[in-house]
Amino acid sequence: MSPSAPLFLRLAPVLALLGMCLGIVMGISQDHRLQTLHAHVNLIGWVSMFLAGLYYRLVPAADGRLAYWHFGLATLGLASLGTGLAGLAFGERSFEPFAVVGSLLTIAAMAVFAWIVARTS
């Protein structure tokens, strides 16, 4: 297994569980203000990270220093974006910079991954 693949493959299911738990809590409470956070945790955290992990595992040439940058940017991006989305969902406009920074980090992470895929596929 390549060096960064385990990072993605171990974190992704944890994020899937967090996203699912958030969905269950919203359903039980009938308070769906965090539905955007729920969607982002599941799609960016679970789906994107797991697929990236599989790619790095299947294409060892893709793994390397850039793959670690991808992981770091994706993780920081999701954490910042999630913080911003949660704050905004509860009407706290002061959390908007977290959402903006998180979005930019997430896009940067995907740009790094796109570069990696383009040069190794």
Rank of each mutant, 00 (worst) to 15 (best):
I116T: 08
A109N: 06
R119G: 04
L85C: 11
T83R: 05
A86K: 01
T75H: 09
A111P: 06
G91Y: 11
A74D: 04
R65P: 13
L76K: 03
L76D: 00
A89I: 09
G84F: 00
V112E: 08
V100C: 02
H70I: 01
G84T: 02
F113V: 04
G84N: 02
G102V: 06
S103V: 05
G77H: 02
A86G: 04
A111I: 15
S103F: 10
A61L: 10
L73M: 09
G84Y: 02
I107Y: 04
L78I: 11
G77Q: 00
L105A: 03
A99N: 06
V101L: 15
S80P: 10
L76V: 11
F113K: 02
L66Y: 09
S103R: 04
L81Q: 05
L88K: 08
G91M: 10
R93F: 09
E96P: 00
G84S: 06
W115S: 15
A86V: 05
F113S: 03
L88H: 10
Y68F: 15
A74I: 03
L78V: 08
A74N: 12
L81T: 04
L104Q: 10
A99Q: 05
V112F: 11
A111M: 15
E96Y: 14
F113A: 10
A62N: 05
A118P: 10
F71Y: 14
L85T: 07
E96V: 05
L78S: 05
E96W: 11
L104A: 12
E96C: 02
Y68N: 12
A86R: 01
R119T: 14
P60V: 06
G87R: 03
R65I: 04
T75R: 03
L78E: 04
A118F: 15
W69Y: 14
F90M: 11
G72N: 05
A108G: 15
M110H: 07
S94K: 09
A62M: 05
F71G: 02
